[in-house]
């Protein structure tokens, strides 16, 4: 086992055990490379997340966690490497992938002059879904639906991001710093939503510089990959699992 690999017990927050051995893989990424202005950020990152699994991407600031999540979301095109998303046995290209993911990230913003409800309603119309689920999420997360997005506190804005990510019940959740600015109640509420999402058979990728209070199936440590690359070794990081996958 390479030094950047680690193992964590595959126990859901709810206590349900994951059965990766019988679930087909959903999200696969191979040898992803990306950089900015000649500065390499991702150096051959690979991984595989199957139905119902949670991949934790961790690493120091600047190790490429957000870049990886944006690449997986289709919001950045990696300079090389492949990303495959299989849903219902079908492969989806980056355009189709964008429609099937739910994304929470610090860079996700809303129209400040529109209310939280109007922002979600707009995206619901774009996706061709009823706004009911989005409204229920706002209510469950305690977001003031009729307040302009520009007048929301940073914690409420993060709750709105979660509502945006989940309102179309995506098969894939990509979460970059998902608990940022949330208070204890907010963190508990979104963790419950994440558990429900995984229990439905969807998958999630969570990027965070710190160890979260989540049970994860796989861990990808980008700091270790960066260290290996810097040392001139083969720059290939693999998401590792508890032994049921990978």
């Amino acid at each position: 086992m390479p030094p950047h690999e680690s193992c964590e017990r595959p126990v859901r927050p709810s206590g349900t055990r994951y059965t990766s051995a019988v679930s087909p893989p959903l999200l696969i990424f191979r040898d992803l490379v990306h950089g900015f202005g000649g500065l390499p950020v991702l150096r051959g990152v690979s991984g595989r997340v199957a139905t119902g699994e949670l991949l934790l991407v961790r690493g120091a600031n600047g190790s490429g966690k957000s870049t990886l999540v944006r690449c997986l979301a289709g919001l950045l095109r990696p300079q090389s490497g492949e990303i495959e998303l299989q849903v219902d046995g079908q492969l989806h290209d980056s355009e189709a992938r964008r429609q099937r993911i739910g994304w929470v990230g610090p860079g996700l913003a809303f129209y400040e002059s529109l209310t939280a409800e109007e922002n979600l309603g707009f995206h619901a119309r774009l996706r061709g879904i009823e706004p009911d689920h989005g409204l229920a999420l706002l209510r469950d997360l305690g977001v003031p639906a009729h307040r302009a997005a520009g007048a929301l506190s940073s914690g409420m804005l993060q709750r709105l991001r979660w509502s945006f990510a989940l309102q179309h019940r995506p098969p894939v959740l990509l979460l970059d710093e998902p608990f940022q600015n949330l208070d204890a109640a907010g963190e508990e509420a979104v963790q419950a939503l994440l558990s429900a999402h995984l229990e439905r058979g969807s998958l999630a990728v969570v990027a965070s510089p710190i160890q979260l209070g989540l049970s994860t199936d796989r861990v990808l440590d980008l700091t270790d990959i960066s260290a290996h690359s810097a040392a001139g070794e083969r720059a290939s990081g693999e998401a590792t699992s508890d032994g049921t996958g990978s």
Binding site: G74, E95, R98, W103, L108, F110, Y111, L126, R127
Partner: peptide, 13 residues
């Protein structure tokens, strides 16, 4: 500038 473009990219053609 308002960082709303990414959400739009995810939701619409």
């Amino acid at each position: 500038e308002g960082h709303t473009a990414d959400a739009l990219r995810l939701s619409a053609l």
